[in-house]
Design a protein around this nucleic acid. Structure first.
Lengths: 194, 194
DNA sequence: GACGGCGAGTAGACACTGTCTACTCCGCTT
DNA sequence: AAGCGGAGTAGACAGTGTCTACTCGCCGTC
């Protein structure tokens, strides 16, 4: 039932996901999504009152994907908080690199409704996990775990952006985000070997 | 001559700067900028072949402003590399907060031409300064200064974004970026008192 | 001093966008 | 069997970026 939901609502979201993955954010016009779904340009209006509502639904799908990827990485990692944090960070950057169009949409709050998508739906669970793990690591700075987690999250975001627009070569001469990520983790959480 | 350049090219850029500062990125339509400058919608085409070229010129103005703000902050700071880095970081975040529309435009590479604006024009000088100062600080991680500078820059960017879309309350419960910035600086550069 | 040319800006067309509204049409209930 | 309502269609509308034909005023040249 849920697997093959051929309702137009689901088909529109699926078409949008395909478009943003293959073509990028610029392809996500209302009419193009409708064309891709095989309906007229007025059809989406029955399910999404406005363009941004449809875009928000597509972004929600991306947040679910990201949350699943993060959960998988967390499970695959060991039990140590340090390695779990490293796994989450890698998964975050991997998702941003694997689906750059979707990642851009997810954090283009000007395209999304009500500013409540990115924060409460996925960032908050992620952030809570980060805070929990950071508290277990007991970082050298001695700052509150929530503050360290926030700073670390901002760092991950910044690294994802840097790589997305190809600024990495400024820092490393190559396209490899790995050294920067290692440096960021070491900075916020302390040296690798504890 | 240069102070009161009333050429249409300069007037268009000025109108764009005013629009993006007052209304936001969404107001930067070609026709609206032309209206603001008091000319017909076809006039800009003589100076900017396309819409993104005009937007790029406006963004360039923002990069110049940011570079000037950073230089001022650097001069106003003392001579210690740690305090200069802190001053630069504060100035960076202050600019992003004071001119959010312009800041958004500057790093919306989908709106800018050739992806060569943000990188080589301002980020590179800033990045070189950061690397130089980081090398003087000799951060505890022992990583290469360029890598630490890159990670720190990414952190600043991430913090600016976090604040821009109001996610800060997740980490601190308030809108104050200061604790997160202090944590980031301490993480990448070592504790404040050396 | 008249004339031609040319730079600068105007005005309109075109295809496209998001939104809104009138309409068709099929399946269901009564 | 009749009617009704949900679902999708089709067209209009204002707005957008781009392109092209045009006007107009100023300059140098004969």
């Amino acid at each position: 039932m849920n697997d093959q939901d051929t309702g137009l609502r689901a088909r529109l979201v699926a078409a949008g996901v395909e478009l943003v993955t293959g073509e990028g954010v610029h392809a996500l016009t209302l009419r193009e999504i409708a064309r891709q779904a095989g309906v007229s340009h007025g059809a989406p209006r029955r399910y999404f009152a406005t363009h941004v509502e449809l875009l928000s639904a597509i972004a929600r799908h991306g947040f679910d994907e990201l949350a699943a990827a993060l959960a998988d990485a967390d499970h695959a990692a060991g039990t140590g908080p340090r390695e779990r944090l490293a796994a989450l960070a890698h998964a975050y950057l991997d998702y941003a690199a694997a689906a750059p169009g979707m990642f851009e949409l997810m954090f283009r709050h000007d395209l999304l409704e009500g500013s409540g998508i990115g924060l409460r739906r996925t960032s908050l669970p992620l952030f809570e996990t980060l805070t929990l793990l950071v508290a277990q690591v007991r970082p050298p700075s001695g700052a509150e775990p929530a503050v360290v987690a926030g700073a670390l999250w901002a760092n991950l975001h910044g690294l994802a952006q840097l790589r997305a627009w190809g600024s990495l070569q400024l820092a490393t001469g190559g396209d490899d985000v790995e050294p920067l990520l290692r440096a960021a983790l070491a900075a916020h959480l302390g040296p690798e070997a504890r």
